[in-house]
Design a protein around this nucleic acid. Structure first.
Lengths: 252, 252
DNA sequence: CCTCAATGGTCTAACACTAGCCCAATTAAC
DNA sequence: GTTAATTGGGCTAGTGTTAGACCATTGAGG
């Protein structure tokens, strides 16, 4: 059945575009999406261990949901051991979650939990978005303040204790996206990062890898500060490729 | 008020990360989001003028919403003149919308309708995401089939009639993202494109610009086929920068 | 010891959304 | 014509979500 204006040569290829555009409008119900979002804040370390979430009323407004739904999500996270909720003035929902110190055995399981397709999707997505963000930032003119933030993140990471490393690494990568001034881009990078955070947490932190990562981080910042988009993209790509290759090795 | 584990130096910078992560969970209610999604399919030309949307029952499943909500959205688009809905077998929701042939006067209005902040956000977002997608695709090994799709999109665009140009241009850019094999990336590119589609539609299509765009498209494909991520990123950046500069000029 | 501001805990009425069912219209094929 | 398949149109009962009010608890400061 070929309609009057639907030429046959289009129909075949456009089916892919249809899948892309006519995807689910919502990832789940409000409760599920809220749990995901809070987990993002916790697992990415945006709210550090021991710190507390904003008050329920305030947070509900920020997330654009009702307090009832937010409370359901918080209770779920409390029961799952991520939060400690205390009443009264100076109370609140405190983060109790501490990212696991990984043993190698976990990695295989975590990779297996995620589908092969989802894993490659997440890795590709992250690669594209973070490379793009770094290149855009390198191509834009930076104020001295922006440069300072970048350098600061780098030294934070160098001086980090092991238990703070992942959190500060996330902060480093997220800052690159935020410094572009595009909230859309920053949100997308945070999203991409969350999709691989469980995997990253399961990778053992060996001294060799940390030193390798440190020099790659330096290369990224240097390229951005030098205003060299190509070098920035390449530096980020090399940095992420190390992780990606390691994870892909577990797909066999 | 500095909590026990919240060090003062973190608090300042992390507020930006909080904004990034604790953003609204939902862009609107199901009805509004559905309208947006259908408009995306229509305005991007994924469903060509004269073609019809999938049957309501099927579409509702794809979008993950109830038929009632879908029907409300369709009715809204019908009343707004985007769709013509016919009952009975071989009926359906047919696209009546044809992208406007722009006069220059519109552009100023469309740019003004969008906030300055939203505009730069959208342009930055698109730049990062499309550059990243092209670079990733160039870095991956392509099958002969994938190469054929790319070349095909290019010739489609070269041979396009004026009224089909925007649609095929969208298809070209979308295909780059889809060929990476990452649905997440493809969806994000579609999203980025929609955010500037009203603007693109308002830009007059001058012969000079079309020729310019054509050679840029060729450069993009050549770089991807040559497996050169740096060249691919640069080619896409140059291509998009032309549009971005034109639009930014209207911000004064 | 009291007070009071900030915070989590709970309830209710209204509204949004869903799943599933059946009806109505249309048209190709017989 | 008649039929049958496909499609939009409409209804209902049940569940998810919201807005807003009010209660309960906590702890710093007077």
């Amino acid at each position: 059945m070929i309609g009057p204006l639907t030429r046959p040569e289009d129909t075949m290829d456009d089916s892919a575009h249809l899948m892309t555009v006519l995807r689910p409008v919502r990832a789940g119900n409000a409760f599920e999406e809220t749990v995901e979002r809070l987990l993002q804040a916790i697992k990415l370390g945006v709210v550090a261990p021991g710190a507390k979430l904003p008050p329920e009323r305030e947070l509900a407004v920020q997330l654009g949901i009702s307090r009832v739904t937010l409370r359901e999500a918080i209770r779920a996270l409390q029961e799952a051991g991520y939060l400690d909720v205390r009443r009264g003035r100076y109370g609140g929902a405190f983060v109790t979650y501490v990212p696991p110190q990984p043993g190698t055995g976990d990695l295989r399981r975590v990779v297996a939990d995620m589908g092969t397709a989802d894993l490659t999707d997440a890795l590709t997505f992250r690669m594209a978005v973070e490379c793009g963000a770094a290149a855009v930032l390198a191509a834009s003119e930076l104020t001295e303040e922006q440069r300072a933030v970048l350098r600061r993140r780098l030294t934070d990471l160098d001086e980090a204790r092991v238990e703070d490393y992942r959190r500060l690494d996330t902060a480093f990568h997220l800052s690159i996206a935020e410094l572009t001034g595009s909230p859309l881009l920053a949100a997308t990078c945070a999203d991409a990062r969350l999709r691989v955070s469980d995997l990253l947490n399961a990778i053992p932190m060996l001294q060799v890898n940390l030193e390798h990562a440190a020099s790659q981080h330096q290369a990224i910042v240097a390229a951005i500060l030098a205003g060299d988009p190509e070098a920035a993209r390449r530096a980020v790509a090399e940095h992420l490729e190390g992780t990606a290759a390691l994870l892909r090795a577990f797909l066999s």
